[in-house]
Design a binder for these strands. Sequence first.
RNA 1: GCCCCCAUCGUCUAGCGGCCGAGGACACCACCCUUUCAAGGUGGCGGCACGGGUUCGAAUCCCGUUGGGGGUGCCA
Length: 471
Amino acid sequence: MAGDPQAIPRYRIAPSPTGFFHVGGARTALFNWALARREGGRFVLRIEDTDQARDRPQWTTGIIEALAWLGISSDDPTFEGPYFQSANAAAHVAAAERLFAAGHAYYCDLTPEQVQERSTSSGRPGYDGYSRERDLAPGPGRVLRFRVPDGTTIVRDRIRGDVTFEHAAIEDFVLLRGNGRPMFLLANVVDDIEMGITHVVRGEEHLPNAPKQQLMWSALGHGPPMWAHVPVLVNEQRKKLSKRRDKVALEQYRDEGFLAAAMVNYLMTLGWAPAGDTEIVPWAQIEEEFRIEDVTHSPGYFDVKKLAAFNGEYVRALPVDEFVDACRPWLPAHYDLDTFTAIAPLVQTRVVTLAEAPGLVDFLFLDEPQIDEAAWSKAMGPEWAGPLLDAAIDAYGAASWDTDTLKVELERIGAEHGQKLGKAQAPVRVAVTGRTVGPPLFESLELLGRERTLGRLRAARAKLAEPAPMP
RNA sequence: GCCCCCAUCGUCUAGCGGCCGAGGACACCACCCUUUCAAGGUGGCGGCACGGGUUCGAAUCCCGUUGGGGGUGCCA
């Protein structure tokens, strides 16, 4: 029962199926999860599918998969659900009828247009309580409105403290639509009561709903839950993250090769900080230290660059075999796993996301490297480039094929042309990999093998010898 | 318009009346290391929005101003 101090804490998240999982929702879910886990409580997932206009079964699956990716799943006894709000419609209506019978609600036959007209002509915003005392019976097209009493409501918020709302500023809001279907405010409260929810941790955009809902908890005969409204996530313009302008789908980050652990760590430290000088902390520590009371009061900028930095940290911290394994979904079919595994330690420190990994070493798996024109002209520009390539072809034909020898040979050749290794490696790198940057060259050559390396060097030499194409 | 929330480096934050001439992280800059690029190391740049109080003492408490944000649906 809500309000029973003996009861174990029951947290919940109540997402509506929209086709993707919002990063803000992910953060709220994580906050709830951390709290429920540490307090030995429950984490209830309730799908708020009341709005029939938008709902597809697969969207619910998407929510469950997104949560599981974050580490929130029914594998853990803390998890409860999913429940579906639509399945409880009868209870919502029954609660509405009880409120009506008890005088906490009344019917109104005004259309939305009429409400608007009255508001415009009176100059006062919102519904004016027109039908309060008209004592209307239920009927088609009539909405049921909550009778907001005189007075004030104090919402005790674990993050913000006491927030006072004057009832005068709260209009008699709709409980049941003209077609008899329940509204979100009603369904949400009825479900929370039925599910014994004791703690509500949700986005700050719901703060204005809290007094209305608290009034309903009370009218339905219950004390309110413990509220906590966490600040919203904003973009660089400091506007609430929106799916139209911003990249908000958790799935998208997952598909781009962000690690779940990095995402979780980043989200948890957006608005809260663990003790100590580092923000990169394992979940176990987060769970132990996280206090909802310590969450910041102000909106948090969802900084993809910082997320990327976190991800880089997590990628580098992976044991190599795990790194290779994690990369597999992004590896094209023609990539040989053994070769990729061999070069993996060298790509691991050079990527931010897993999706970047294959592109870094594509030259190992192609018949011919993709030559970048800008890289080509930069590396092949010096007059010593051709002769150096000739010397390399000559030396590499006979050299022992290992990283050290390859390096020593090119060092020698470079010196003969008055170039340090840093410069001398450029024409070779472009000839073999097609780019000026990439994993360490001689390790790459060793893996590529003598024949393919020589073939690419000769091809480059031939191309260099061609007369420059006339413009 | 009305209601509500918020305010420490560009960003995320530590700070809960003296330990703060404000600490860390990301980003940025420089240097070191170096076979390119990364990674790593060292150093640097940079902030308590403003004005009044309270107090021996304020980033920390109070009030106001300004500036942001959220809400204001027969959406959730």
